[in-house]
């Protein structure tokens, strides 16, 4: 084969090496870190949803235990209570639990007694509340008292406090860990970019001494490392998406577990990952190139 110059065959080659053995390592590092950050983002989003879900369920309802008073039958008292409660503003529905269900609830404690009719068994009234305008337990209590009913209102506020605290903790913990991992990923991408660029110091120097403007050199490296990081970030995000999708499918319609419900739409939070990785790498490349060029002056 002749090495004779062939104008038809020749096309100016890019200033920077097209591909490099070192790029593989950098792509791998970026991919792994992006994957971890993406998993954390998914965990955070689903933990947030789970916490929200728990609280919402509790806020939306209350339970009232109605004890029959005087000669009133338990069923009549429950019916009257349900009617009363339904009239309170902010109550969307109030329903007395059927007698059979009430028995079912106490059977485990009392055994299969036949003459339940004789016992003044309390009845339960479940109340569904308007979430935007939730009446307080005291309001419900007053409404019952006004009608001469003896009831104990449980608006789940005791639980709610714990649940809210747990949700708050889950949210901050998830968010904090996500930020930590994302920050570490960014730092490692920046360092890897710096190392990659330092390995090509010779190219920077030659371009510089041949009269290349700094902006040109910085732009070359910026574009170069942004591309590498985008590839790595995409690989990491896709892997995390695959894991998320697997969890979603394994969990069926309701998600894997109530504790970590992943929705298909959650996978959207992974979209910015390649862009973020590219941005970090581009910035790191720019800073490194700038400082290298400053050293040469």
């Amino acid at each position: 084969m002749s090495e004779m110059f062939d104008a038809a065959r020749w096309k100016p080659a890019p200033f920077l090496p097209e591909a490099d053995a070192r790029d593989g390592a950098l792509i791998f590092v970026v991919a792994v870190l992006s994957f971890l950050a993406c998993l954390m983002a998914l965990a955070f989003v689903s933990a947030d949803r789970a916490a929200h879900g728990w609280a919402q369920q509790l806020v939306g309802e209350a339970t009232v235990i109605v004890r029959p008073k005087g000669g009133e039958s338990p069923d009549a008292a429950a019916a009257r209570a349900a009617e009363t409660l339904a009239g309170v503003p902010g109550v969307s529905e109030a329903r007395a639990l059927e007698r059979e269900k009430a028995y079912d609830l106490i059977r485990p404690w009392l055994g299969d007694v036949t003459d339940l009719e004789d016992l003044p068994v309390p009845r339960l009234v479940t109340v569904e509340l308007d979430r935007r305008n939730t009446p307080s337990a005291a309001t419900l209590d007053q409404a019952l008292k006004a009608q001469g009913l003896d009831g104990v209102v449980d608006d789940h506020s005791l639980w709610l406090k714990d649940i809210t605290r747990a949700a708050w903790a889950a949210r901050w913990l998830g968010g904090g860990v996500f930020l930590l991992i994302a920050g570490a990923a960014a730092a490692v991408i920046a360092f890897a970019t710096r190392a990659g660029l330092t390995a090509r110091r010779d190219v920077v120097e030659v371009l510089h001494l041949a009269g290349a403007e700094h902006a040109l050199i910085a732009k070359l490296f910026q574009a170069r490392f942004a591309r590498i990081a985008a590839v790595g970030g995409t690989a990491g995000a896709l892997t995390a998406a695959a894991v998320g999708a697997t969890l979603r499918m394994a969990g069926g319609g309701e998600g894997l577990t109530p504790a970590l419900p992943i929705a298909w739409s959650d996978l959207l939070v992974l979209l910015p990952c390649p862009v973020a990785a590219a941005l970090v790498a581009a910035l790191a490349a720019r800073f490194t190139a700038d400082s290298m060029i400053r050293d040469l002056q």
Partner: peptide, 11 residues
């Protein structure tokens, strides 16, 4: 060839 042409391309 590309090495030799470098200064011209940079300019």
């Amino acid at each position: 060839f590309d090495n030799a042409a470098l200064p011209l391309r940079i300019a």
